[in-house]
Amino acid sequence: MYIKKISLKNFRNYEFLETEFSPNINVFIGKNAQGKTNLLESFFVLALARSHRTSDDKDLIKWGQDFARINARIEKNTNSEKLELIISKAGKKAKANNLEQKKLSNYVGNLNIVLFAPEDLNLIKGNPTQRRRFLDMEIGQISRSYLSNFSQFKKILRQRNNYLKQLQKKVTKDKIYLDVLTDQIAAFGTEIIVERKKFLKKLEIYMQSMHTKLTEDKESLKILYKTNSFDASLDDKEKIYNDLKNNYHKNYDKEIRAGTTMLGPQRDDIAFLINKRDVSDFGSQGQQRTVILSMKLAEVELIKDVIGDYPVLLLDDVLSELDENRQTQLLKAIEDNIQTFITTTSIDGVNKEIVKNPQIYNVDGGRIIKSREENN
């Protein structure tokens, strides 16, 4: 799939923009703070109905305006689609082929995106929240059932936390309603956990293949699902549910004292092992970057396997963060296969021996000038 055309209205520093793109390599060149990352963010928001940079949708709306709008024409193997997302103080409104989508979970997945940004290089060393967010966004792109279950889980989690606070403050002593909420949160939590584990098994297979190439078969890679909520060795849905629910009941007193839910997928984590050692603790910076690069390339292939079409790849000022070998491996992997958007402050940051005939755009103060196709 590829983004053929996009139109922005009041998005970040773009008052209005309408332009078409190459189905191959598109390079945005400009100084910092001119709108390169904002443009890639608009693609991401259009795809997932949320930003990777902010949790406050108001940040996406140009200062002094009431709304932001993103329109795009998406070309796929089998069809062409028109997508629209409007962001306002009242919330978000999404349309696919001019039909309003009542649930955002029914909208997400019409455009598939893989983003590689400098902050992703901190994914391994960062906190568990970052890794859970990665899981939730990537699985949500290819599984609407995951989005639906995750939405229900968050709703019940809020209700359960509020009730635990009431029990903590002795506003109520009735644990029957806590039992009801516990059964519900265990059921939806199990659905999330099962999909996460299935996704990670697939991702691990693709990552192992990529990692072997990047390290010339010198390192073995594994992904570990880390949890205190249930026996992590379990894969059977019913066994996970029973184990999770039993652990909730065993920890009632602790949770009431804390006034919050202490178990469940909202507390779980993942780890990447190189030669059976956690790369976050024992890996060099080079090894950590190789793992992230393997992950991003694996995401591309996994999405292709699931939906039958390559996703759009966004490389936000990341080439300068990679050494020549890793940059070469990345660019070779996307050659002639994937629509790719690259942001950089200079065309010198793009390997011209590998990237053939990129479409060049100059970005300056929320304006874009399509300059030429760079011939090598």
Score class of each variant (00 low, 15 high):
residue 342 I to M: 05
residue 71 N to A: 00
residue 246 N to G: 08
residue 325 N to V: 14
residue 230 F to V: 08
residue 50 R to F: 01
residue 219 E to C: 02
residue 177 Y to S: 05
residue 7 S to C: 02
residue 283 G to K: 13
residue 182 T to K: 13
residue 37 T to W: 08
residue 210 M to C: 11
residue 149 N to Y: 15
residue 35 G to P: 03
residue 276 K to F: 00
residue 227 T to H: 01
residue 40 L to Y: 08
residue 21 F to N: 08
residue 364 D to F: 15
residue 168 Q to A: 05
residue 195 E to L: 06
residue 19 T to M: 04
residue 263 L to P: 10
residue 67 F to I: 04
residue 238 E to I: 06
residue 144 R to F: 10
residue 54 T to I: 07
residue 179 D to C: 02
residue 309 D to H: 08
residue 338 I to H: 03
residue 251 N to K: 15
residue 141 Q to D: 10
residue 149 N to G: 11
residue 104 L to C: 04
residue 64 G to Q: 11
residue 49 A to T: 12
residue 137 M to V: 09
residue 348 D to I: 06
residue 198 K to L: 08
residue 88 S to R: 03
residue 53 R to G: 00
residue 22 S to H: 05
residue 102 K to W: 08
residue 215 T to C: 01
residue 363 V to F: 03
residue 163 Y to A: 03
residue 118 P to N: 10
residue 268 D to F: 12
residue 312 V to S: 04
residue 79 N to C: 14
residue 326 R to Q: 01
residue 233 S to K: 14
residue 280 S to I: 12
residue 358 P to D: 10
residue 119 E to L: 11
residue 33 A to C: 10
residue 201 K to S: 11
residue 233 S to C: 06
residue 120 D to I: 08
residue 39 L to P: 00
residue 154 K to S: 06
residue 29 I to F: 13
residue 85 L to N: 10
residue 104 L to E: 00
residue 126 G to R: 13
residue 23 P to W: 15
residue 308 G to Y: 07
residue 153 F to V: 09
residue 123 L to N: 06
residue 233 S to E: 10
residue 262 M to V: 05
residue 73 R to M: 05
residue 19 T to L: 13
residue 221 L to T: 07
residue 38 N to M: 02
residue 156 I to E: 04
residue 32 N to H: 11
residue 157 L to V: 02
residue 224 L to K: 12
residue 71 N to Y: 14
residue 188 F to K: 14
residue 258 A to H: 07
residue 252 Y to H: 02
residue 61 I to A: 01
residue 153 F to T: 07
residue 255 E to Y: 09
residue 99 L to I: 15
residue 366 G to Y: 09
residue 64 G to T: 09
residue 247 N to W: 00
residue 158 R to T: 12
residue 3 I to R: 09
residue 216 E to F: 13
residue 278 D to R: 10
residue 262 M to N: 11
residue 300 V to L: 10
residue 204 E to D: 05
residue 187 A to D: 06
residue 194 V to Q: 07
residue 330 L to A: 00
residue 207 M to V: 05
residue 95 K to Y: 15
residue 229 S to K: 11
residue 4 K to S: 13
residue 151 S to T: 14
residue 149 N to A: 14
residue 162 N to I: 01
residue 320 S to K: 13
residue 261 T to I: 04
